[in-house]
Measured scan of single mutants.
Amino acid sequence: RMRTAFTSTQLLELEREFSSNMYLSRLRRIEIATYLNLSEKQVKIWFQNRRVKHKK
Rank of each mutant, 00 (worst) to 15 (best):
R1L: 12
R1M: 13
R1A: 09
M2C: 06
M2E: 14
M2K: 12
M2F: 10
M2I: 10
M2S: 12
M2A: 09
M2L: 07
M2Q: 11
R3V: 15
R3N: 15
R3P: 13
R3S: 15
R3G: 14
T4I: 12
T4C: 14
T4M: 13
A5K: 08
A5D: 15
A5E: 14
A5T: 14
A5Y: 10
A5S: 14
A5P: 10
F6Y: 11
F6H: 08
F6C: 07
F6P: 10
F6L: 14
F6R: 03
F6E: 06
F6D: 08
F6A: 06
T7K: 07
T7Y: 05
T7N: 11
T7S: 09
S8I: 09
S8P: 11
S8T: 13
S8W: 07
S8Y: 06
S8Q: 12
S8V: 09
S8A: 11
T9L: 11
T9K: 10
T9C: 12
T9I: 10
T9H: 11
T9W: 13
T9R: 09
Q10I: 03
Q10L: 00
Q10P: 02
Q10R: 01
L11Y: 02
L11C: 08
L11T: 09
L11R: 05
L11I: 10
L11H: 08
L11S: 09
L11M: 13
L12W: 09
L12C: 13
L12I: 13
L12A: 14
E13D: 08
E13M: 05
E13I: 05
E13N: 07
E13S: 06
E13Q: 07
E13C: 06
L14Y: 00
L14A: 00
L14P: 01
L14R: 01
L14T: 01
L14V: 02
L14K: 00
L14F: 03
E15H: 01
E15G: 00
E15W: 01
E15C: 03
E15K: 02
R16N: 10
R16A: 12
R16S: 10
R16P: 05
E17Y: 03
E17A: 07
E17Q: 06
E17H: 01
E17F: 05
E17V: 03
E17C: 05
F18H: 00
F18E: 00
F18Q: 01
F18C: 02
F18Y: 12
F18L: 01
F18M: 02
F18R: 00
S19Y: 05
S19Q: 13
S19E: 14
S19R: 08
S19M: 12
S20Q: 14
S20V: 07
S20A: 13
S20R: 06
S20C: 08
S20Y: 11
S20F: 10
N21E: 05
N21K: 02
N21M: 01
N21D: 10
M22Q: 12
M22P: 14
M22I: 07
M22H: 09
M22L: 07
M22N: 08
M22C: 13
Y23M: 08
Y23G: 05
Y23F: 08
Y23A: 07
Y23I: 12
L24E: 06
L24D: 07
L24W: 00
L24H: 07
L24P: 08
L24R: 00
S25R: 05
S25H: 05
S25V: 07
S25C: 15
S25T: 08
S25D: 08
R26A: 15
R26P: 15
R26G: 15
R26H: 15
R26W: 15
R26Q: 15
R26S: 15
R26I: 15
R26E: 15
L27D: 08
L27G: 07
R28M: 00
R28T: 05
R28Y: 01
R28V: 01
R28S: 00
R28I: 01
R29E: 08
R29V: 07
R29A: 09
R29K: 05
R29L: 08
R29S: 07
I30L: 10
I30Y: 04
I30M: 07
I30N: 06
I30G: 05
I30F: 04
I30D: 04
I30W: 03
E31G: 02
E31P: 05
E31A: 05
E31D: 05
E31Q: 05
E31R: 03
E31S: 05
E31K: 06
E31N: 03
I32P: 06
I32R: 02
I32A: 03
A33N: 00
A33C: 04
A33Q: 06
A33H: 04
A33Y: 00
A33P: 00
A33M: 05
A33G: 04
T34W: 01
T34R: 06
T34Q: 06
T34S: 07
T34E: 08
T34A: 07
T34L: 06
Y35H: 06
Y35T: 13
Y35L: 12
Y35C: 08
Y35K: 09
Y35E: 07
Y35V: 10
Y35I: 09
Y35W: 07
Y35S: 11
L36S: 03
L36K: 05
L36Q: 00
L36C: 09
L36H: 04
L36I: 06
L36T: 06
L36W: 02
N37T: 08
N37Q: 12
N37P: 00
N37Y: 05
N37M: 07
N37E: 08
N37L: 05
N37R: 09
L38F: 02
L38D: 03
L38S: 05
L38W: 02
L38G: 02
S39P: 10
S39D: 10
S39F: 04
S39Q: 09
S39A: 08
S39N: 08
S39I: 02
S39T: 13
E40I: 05
E40P: 05
E40F: 04
E40G: 01
E40V: 05
E40W: 06
E40S: 03
E40D: 03
K41S: 15
K41M: 14
K41R: 12
K41A: 15
K41F: 15
K41D: 14
Q42P: 00
Q42A: 11
Q42C: 11
Q42L: 10
Q42K: 06
V43S: 01
V43L: 03
V43D: 02
V43M: 00
V43R: 02
V43P: 00
V43N: 03
V43T: 01
K44L: 15
K44F: 15
K44A: 15
K44D: 14
I45Y: 10
I45R: 10
I45Q: 14
I45T: 12
I45C: 11
I45H: 12
I45W: 13
W46K: 05
W46I: 02
W46S: 04
W46C: 04
W46R: 02
W46A: 02
W46E: 00
F47S: 03
F47V: 00
F47T: 01
F47I: 02
Q48L: 10
Q48G: 06
N49T: 12
N49K: 11
N49C: 08
N49V: 08
N49L: 11
N49R: 07
R50G: 01
R50D: 04
R50S: 06
R50Q: 10
R50W: 01
R50V: 03
R50E: 13
R50L: 04
R51A: 14
R51D: 03
R51K: 12
R51Q: 10
V52M: 11
V52Q: 13
V52K: 14
V52L: 11
V52H: 11
K53C: 11
K53N: 11
K53A: 14
K53W: 12
K53V: 13
H54V: 07
H54Q: 09
H54C: 09
H54E: 14
H54Y: 11
H54S: 09
H54P: 08
K55P: 09
K55V: 11
K55Y: 13
K55F: 13
K55C: 11
K55M: 12
K55H: 13
K55E: 13
K55S: 12
